[in-house]
Amino acid sequence: NITNLCPFDEVFNATRFASVYAWNRKRISNCVADYSVLYNFAPFFAFKCYGVSPTKLNDLCFTNVYADSFVIRGNEVSQIAPGQTGNIADYNYKLPDDFTGCVIAWNSNKLDSKVGGNYNYLYRLFRKSNLKPFERDISTEIYQAGNKPCNGVAGFNCYFPLRSYGFRPTYGVGHQPYRVVVLSFELLHAPATVCGPKKST
C-alpha cells in the first residue's frame, strides 16, 4: 500500500531547467500520482495528452512514469508532439509516433530571460542525422557541412553544433522561453508502482 505522493513538484518547480539538447529525465516510481494538482495549476500554456485522457489519469496505474524537462522557445512547443519535424524534434528531443503521455508547457519569461540576454539555454542546430525517439545527444563535436574534414576547428563550413537562445524579456511570445515537462507513461508486464489516488488503496 503506497502512500507517499509522487515528487512532481520537484520537477515542475525546479529552480533551473535543462537546455533542450541535454534534456533532463527523472524516473518516478513507487508513489501516488495526483495529476489533478498539475491539471489545476493555472499558468499552463499547453497540457496535451496522447493515448490517454488527462482527466482519467487519476484512475490509472503505470509501471513507471518518466518526467523529461527542458526549455525551448514558445514557437517550438508545437514540435513536442508525435510525428513532428523541425530543429527541436529532429536534433534535440524526439517523441515516438506511438507516444503515451502528456506534454505540459508554460511561459517562463520572468524566470529564464535576462536584460542583455540569458545565454545559458542551448539547443542543437546541426546534426548529421535525426534523433531516434528519446535519444539524447550531448556531443559538442564540430559539425562538418562541406567535404573538408574540420579536425575539431570551427570555421568555413565547420560549425559548433550548439546555439544559444539568448532570451531577453522584451522578445515577442514566440521567442520567449517556455518550460516543458513531458510525462511518459510506461506500461510493462510488471507490477504497477505509480497509481492515481483512487487506485492506491
Rank of each mutant, 00 (worst) to 15 (best):
Ile2Pro: 13
Asn4Tyr: 09
Cys6Glu: 06
Cys6Asn: 07
Glu10Gly: 08
Asn13Ile: 05
Ala14Trp: 05
Ala14Cys: 07
Thr15His: 10
Arg16Met: 10
Arg16Cys: 09
Phe17Thr: 04
Ala18Thr: 07
Ser19Pro: 08
Ala22His: 11
Asn24Gly: 08
Lys26Ala: 08
Lys26Tyr: 09
Cys31His: 06
Ala33Arg: 08
Ala33Lys: 08
Asp34Val: 05
Tyr35Asn: 08
Tyr35Ser: 09
Val37Gln: 15
Leu38Glu: 02
Leu38Phe: 09
Phe44Thr: 11
Phe44Cys: 06
Phe45Ile: 11
Ala46Lys: 15
Ala46Met: 14
Lys48Tyr: 06
Tyr50Phe: 10
Tyr50Ala: 01
Val52Trp: 07
Val52His: 07
Val52Asn: 05
Ser53Asp: 15
Ser53Gln: 14
Ser53Ile: 10
Ser53Leu: 11
Lys56Leu: 11
Leu57Pro: 05
Asn58His: 11
Asn58Gly: 12
Asp59Cys: 07
Leu60Phe: 11
Asn64Thr: 15
Val65Trp: 05
Tyr66Asn: 10
Tyr66Cys: 08
Ala67Met: 13
Asp68Cys: 03
Asp68Gly: 03
Asp68His: 05
Ser69Leu: 04
Phe70Val: 01
Val71Arg: 02
Ile72Pro: 00
Arg73Ser: 15
Gly74Trp: 02
Gly74Tyr: 04
Gly74Ser: 04
Asn75Asp: 15
Asn75Ile: 07
Glu76Tyr: 03
Glu76Ser: 08
Val77Met: 09
Ser78Asn: 12
Gln79Phe: 03
Pro82Glu: 01
Pro82Leu: 03
Pro82Trp: 02
Pro82Asn: 02
Pro82Ala: 03
Gly83Trp: 07
Gly83Met: 10
Gln84Trp: 07
Thr85Asp: 07
Thr85Gln: 12
Asn87Ile: 15
Ala89Leu: 02
Tyr91Thr: 04
Tyr91Arg: 09
Tyr91Asn: 08
Asn92Ile: 01
Tyr93Ser: 01
Lys94Val: 03
Asp97Glu: 12
Phe99Met: 05
Gly101Thr: 01
Cys102Ser: 02
Ala105Val: 12
Trp106His: 04
Trp106Ala: 05
Ser108Met: 04
Asn109Val: 10
Asn109Ala: 07
Leu111Pro: 07
Lys114Cys: 09
Lys114Ile: 09
Gly117Lys: 02
Gly117Leu: 03
Asn118Ala: 07
Tyr121Ala: 07
Leu122Gln: 12
Arg124Lys: 04
Arg124Ile: 01
Arg124Glu: 00
Arg124Gln: 00
Phe126Ala: 04
Lys128Ser: 14
Ser129His: 13
Ser129Asp: 14
Leu131Ala: 03
Leu131Phe: 04
Lys132Ala: 13
Pro133Gly: 09
Glu135Trp: 05
Arg136Leu: 07
Arg136Lys: 12
Asp137Met: 03
Ile138Asn: 11
Ile138Leu: 14
Ser139Glu: 10
Glu141Asn: 14
Tyr143Ala: 03
Ala145Val: 07
Gly146Ala: 06
Pro149His: 11
Asn151Arg: 11
Asn151Met: 11
Gly152Lys: 11
Gly152Asn: 13
Val153Asn: 14
Val153Gln: 15
Val153Phe: 12
Gly155Thr: 06
Gly155Pro: 03
Phe156Arg: 06
Phe156Tyr: 06
Phe156His: 09
Asn157Ala: 02
Asn157Arg: 03
Cys158Gly: 02
Cys158Asp: 00
Cys158Lys: 03
Phe160Tyr: 14
Leu162His: 03
Leu162Ile: 15
Ser164Phe: 05
Gly166Val: 03
Phe167Gln: 00
Arg168Met: 05
Arg168Val: 01
Thr170Leu: 03
Gly172Tyr: 01
Gly174Asp: 10
Gln176Phe: 02
Arg179Pro: 00
Val180Asn: 01
Val180Ala: 04
Val180Gln: 01
Val181Pro: 00
Val181Tyr: 04
Val181Asn: 02
Leu183Gln: 01
Ser184Lys: 09
Ser184Pro: 01
Ser184Glu: 07
Phe185Arg: 04
Phe185Ile: 08
Leu187Met: 14
Leu188Thr: 15
Leu188Gln: 15
Ala190Thr: 14
Ala190Gln: 14
Ala190Phe: 11
Ala192His: 14
Thr193Lys: 13
Val194Gln: 12
Cys195Asn: 11
Lys198Asn: 15
Lys199Trp: 15
Ser200Glu: 13
Ser200Asn: 14
Ser200Met: 15
Ser200Gln: 14
Ser200Asp: 14
